[in-house]
Amino acid sequence: MFKKINWDALGVTTSVLCAIHCAILPLVIATLPVLGINIIHNPLFENGMIGLAFVIGTRAMWHGFRHHHQHLMPWLLFLGGMIFLVSKQIWHHFELALLPFAVVLIVTAHILNYRLSRRPRNFPIV
């Protein structure tokens, strides 16, 4: 009846959608005010997206760590990505420099967490 949620796949998807959002938004910046939409540098929207990434990512990392692999590397990569995301909110003028690192670290954390969760317990990490 209910399907299990693959939190890593959801995390990768939201991270990629966030990257697309950040890449495409400048291209349609002139259109948004005409449509009455203001999500550009809207603190509520940006912080909400960061909060969503944190909740989904934390859930995925915790599940993988607790039930499958007990490796800290996915956690460390995810934490690094979240630090970059929060940093871009604090230092807006470095946003374009910080965001790619955030996305790469978070997506890498989810992919590693997924791979570690799917390998046999006695299989070495490569």
Rank of each mutant, 00 (worst) to 15 (best):
residue 1 M to I: 09
residue 1 M to N: 04
residue 1 M to Y: 15
residue 2 F to C: 03
residue 3 K to H: 03
residue 3 K to P: 02
residue 4 K to T: 12
residue 5 I to N: 02
residue 6 N to T: 04
residue 6 N to S: 05
residue 7 W to K: 03
residue 7 W to D: 00
residue 7 W to E: 01
residue 7 W to P: 14
residue 8 D to M: 13
residue 8 D to R: 06
residue 8 D to P: 01
residue 8 D to V: 03
residue 8 D to L: 10
residue 8 D to E: 15
residue 9 A to N: 12
residue 9 A to H: 08
residue 10 L to Y: 13
residue 10 L to F: 09
residue 11 G to F: 14
residue 11 G to P: 10
residue 12 V to E: 04
residue 12 V to M: 11
residue 12 V to R: 05
residue 13 T to F: 07
residue 14 T to I: 15
residue 15 S to P: 09
residue 16 V to F: 04
residue 17 L to R: 04
residue 18 C to F: 13
residue 18 C to Q: 14
residue 19 A to P: 01
residue 19 A to Y: 10
residue 20 I to H: 04
residue 20 I to S: 02
residue 20 I to V: 11
residue 21 H to N: 06
residue 21 H to E: 08
residue 21 H to T: 13
residue 25 L to W: 00
residue 25 L to D: 07
residue 26 P to M: 06
residue 27 L to H: 14
residue 28 V to D: 07
residue 29 I to V: 09
residue 31 T to S: 15
residue 32 L to P: 11
residue 34 V to S: 14
residue 35 L to G: 05
residue 36 G to I: 04
residue 37 I to P: 08
residue 39 I to G: 04
residue 39 I to C: 07
residue 41 H to L: 12
residue 43 P to L: 09
residue 45 F to L: 13
residue 50 I to W: 04
residue 51 G to V: 01
residue 52 L to T: 10
residue 53 A to G: 11
residue 53 A to L: 15
residue 54 F to P: 01
residue 54 F to V: 09
residue 54 F to K: 11
residue 54 F to S: 07
residue 55 V to D: 05
residue 56 I to V: 10
residue 58 T to I: 00
residue 58 T to L: 14
residue 59 R to Y: 11
residue 60 A to I: 01
residue 62 W to V: 01
residue 63 H to K: 14
residue 63 H to C: 15
residue 64 G to L: 05
residue 65 F to Y: 09
residue 66 R to Y: 07
residue 68 H to Q: 08
residue 69 H to L: 13
residue 70 Q to G: 01
residue 70 Q to W: 13
residue 70 Q to F: 04
residue 71 H to N: 03
residue 74 P to R: 04
residue 74 P to Q: 02
residue 75 W to T: 00
residue 75 W to C: 01
residue 76 L to R: 01
residue 77 L to P: 08
residue 79 L to F: 07
residue 80 G to M: 02
residue 81 G to S: 09
residue 81 G to C: 03
residue 82 M to R: 05
residue 82 M to T: 11
residue 84 F to H: 01
residue 84 F to R: 06
residue 85 L to D: 12
residue 86 V to H: 11
residue 87 S to C: 05
residue 87 S to N: 09
residue 88 K to H: 13
residue 88 K to D: 10
residue 89 Q to P: 02
residue 91 W to Y: 10
residue 92 H to M: 03
residue 93 H to L: 15
residue 95 E to I: 11
residue 96 L to D: 08
residue 97 A to L: 12
residue 98 L to E: 13
residue 98 L to P: 01
residue 99 L to Q: 14
residue 99 L to M: 11
residue 101 F to V: 02
residue 101 F to P: 04
residue 102 A to L: 09
residue 102 A to M: 06
residue 102 A to Q: 00
residue 104 V to M: 02
residue 104 V to H: 06
residue 105 L to E: 09
residue 105 L to T: 00
residue 105 L to I: 02
residue 106 I to T: 09
residue 106 I to M: 05
residue 106 I to Q: 10
residue 106 I to W: 05
residue 107 V to K: 00
residue 107 V to G: 07
residue 107 V to W: 00
residue 108 T to P: 05
residue 109 A to R: 02
residue 110 H to D: 06
residue 112 L to F: 05
residue 114 Y to S: 05
residue 115 R to D: 03
residue 116 L to A: 02
residue 117 S to M: 04
residue 117 S to P: 02
residue 118 R to P: 08
residue 119 R to S: 11
residue 120 P to N: 03
residue 121 R to F: 14
residue 122 N to P: 01
residue 122 N to V: 04
residue 125 I to A: 12
